[in-house]
Write a protein that binds this DNA or RNA. Structure first.
Lengths: 215, 215, 215, 215
DNA sequence: AATGAATGAGGATTCATTCAT
DNA sequence: AATGAATGAATCCTCATTCAT
């Protein structure tokens, strides 16, 4: 006999099943949000019966939270402020690094946009009982923001902490908006161009704030 | 006549009932998105039985579309590029007008954020059969963008159409992101400050693009 | 056309549907207790779809509570301490009346045992979250006990209140036990004989307590 | 060797695991009845995985039956008609012995009421396929009744067998009822007082039946 | 202009049980 | 002697919608 796959009872392998469930869930939740993600749909997409999903995750809430945890975490790990050693002028070099990061973010969002779409949908909801996934998203997002703040401080050490906070919030928030614009407009939207514009905007903003003492 | 005694006369008033339903629906849909908005919930919030909602609206799809239509339409009507006649220097005047508009938008979003939250949730979803409300939102949004394009052209007539398109998209998209940041962070987020920053970013971007021929 | 019954959409009649649901539920719950009463089973027995049951009752808890309320209430209404005017000797007359009531209770339990079986099952359960039906049962039962206390006071006014309470509790509690014995043993159990014995036991107990002052 | 460090050595000890399962099951089943006792709940309470329960017991039915067998059996073994040799008058001595037994039963029920609560719940249910546990309960109960019959015959040898049967049934059945009253009323119910009353009632009943030939 | 009642489909979740290891 | 993983059937309940009045 060749194999079992696809038809008969496959041998129990918790680790792999969990991964398959998460793979299915991230797609569906990224497309339809929290409510739109039915366990049956996930079950159909991953090939395991609905009741098996409950072996791996306590309930839907925990499943979606795990989706966010895994995908946002791994995404964040991939983002790094790049170097630009080949550029002589320091100001130009920093500009180059910021534009590099912006391009990096833009490209990663073009590749795997599911988790951010899900995260933003969760962030927008205002139910009486917020899903755990929302909290998880906000937490991981906060990490991202701290990284951006650190990068800004590195680039412009003379800025006050409140200015840095405002700038990092603006950087992330506007990026979310650009992403949404791309979600809406599809291929017609020049996401790389928008992020390029945004990188310039940030650099100009840093320069402008540098010139005046914090309020 | 026997009837009506003791009870507040419930005049069969279609117009008012329709309004009550929409009022309830905009709240709930703004909190929970399309899927999260159940007819039963709307019925409970507006006090009319579920079947009455179906007298006024063909189905849920049409109801949510009407919500978007009404609320986004009326919001858009309120947004106008303000004048700043008291400022002498033309460049400074334009800067003043842009900042005025940004403040206007920020304030309006602080007041009634439900419709935009709903709109963005709809925009982010990717289901096989998109709700009509999504289409309606995208249409009204497109109107908004055309207005912004017109304003940019007014401010900087020498820009090429592609540059104007990119700028107007950036203006709107980033504004969405700032709104979301406020949704996430609540009172702690200085929405007016963010929009102020955004206004400057736009003006700087216009200035920068003015300097070079369109790509 | 003759009629609709049995097949097609019957005309909406809330009152009657509610009654049919309760009729089905009292049978099933009397047989299988709270957990054993599935909505699907009730639906099958009463002919209405499960979702229609939820039009009439908020949830299963409320349904079972309504079952207790209706059936125990109507049962209690039927129980009355009978007269025995034709007996000359006062002591013998009271004895006659007590035996008459015991026989009445025994006969009613032979006829419609469902509600008491359900009530006792509910009373025996000890879950963290007790069903409302249990509370309802205990309440109606308390009413029954107050009636018994009143009857005892009428028969033996010189008894102290604590003695009356003990006797009424004993009267009801032992009667429950006799009922259960009949449930277990079926036709072989002489329920009327047991209640006869119980009536004598109560009368003897009253006589015994009369003789001594309350502790 | 690497294994076992840090964890309490979990010796594979069938006997102890079986006991832990039964301990958990008697509690839960005593609280929630047959249907209310889920394998998962038992598993959670005893700390063993659900599949391990199936290693020790064929199915849920057998588990609950074993619960009844163990707990009711051991309870019954502890009940004995006590002696009262220090009392001179034979009639008074018998009375003393009966009251002693009643007190013994009452006290044992105050200590460990779970098994009787479960047994009575099982006895009350009327499902198409009765659980084995019910049969087991009825069997052990029948043993108890035979003991009571024997004791009555010892006390009053002149009673006919049908009278003895009626009396033993009344003795047990009413005792069940008193137990339930205690379950309902909790600490406020004077279970010992009720059993005292019941002992007197039985003695009086024996005396009364002694006086007349069997019907 | 409205509404009480009904309804099939689908929601999340738990059930008792089995099987491979 | 035990257990992690899996599974189909059943659980309670909500869904959007319709229909007769």
């Amino acid at each position: 006999m060749v194999s079992d796959r696809g038809v008969r009872r496959r041998r129990a392998n918790g680790e792999e099943s969990r991964r398959r469930i998460l793979d299915a869930a991230v797609e569906i939740a990224g497309e339809r949000g929290y409510e739109g993600t039915s366990i049956k749909l996930v079950s159909a997409r991953c090939g395991l019966p609905a009741s098996s999903i409950y072996w791996h995750f306590k309930d839907k809430d925990e499943l979606i939270a795990a989706v966010i945890e895994r995908s946002f975490g791994s995404w964040l790990g991939a983002m790094v402020l790049p170097d630009a050693d080949d550029v002589a002028d320091p100001a130009a070099r920093e500009r180059q690094r910021v534009r590099g990061l912006a391009a990096q973010v833009a490209r990663s969002l073009l590749e795997s946009p599911d988790f951010l779409r899900l995260g933003l949908m969760l962030a927008l909801e205002r139910r009486p009982e917020q899903p755990t996934a929302r909290t998880v998203f906000l937490r991981v997002r906060q990490e991202a923001r701290e990284r951006v703040s650190a990068a800004i401080t590195e680039l412009a050490p003379e800025l006050g902490p409140e200015q840095v906070e405002l700038l990092s919030l603006y950087a992330l928030a506007a990026a979310d908006g650009l992403f949404i614009a791309y979600q809406i407009g599809g291929e017609e939207v020049d996401l790389l161009g928008l992020f390029e514009l945004h990188a310039h905007a940030l650099i100009d903003a840093v320069a402008r704030l540098r010139g005046r003492p914090e309020v």
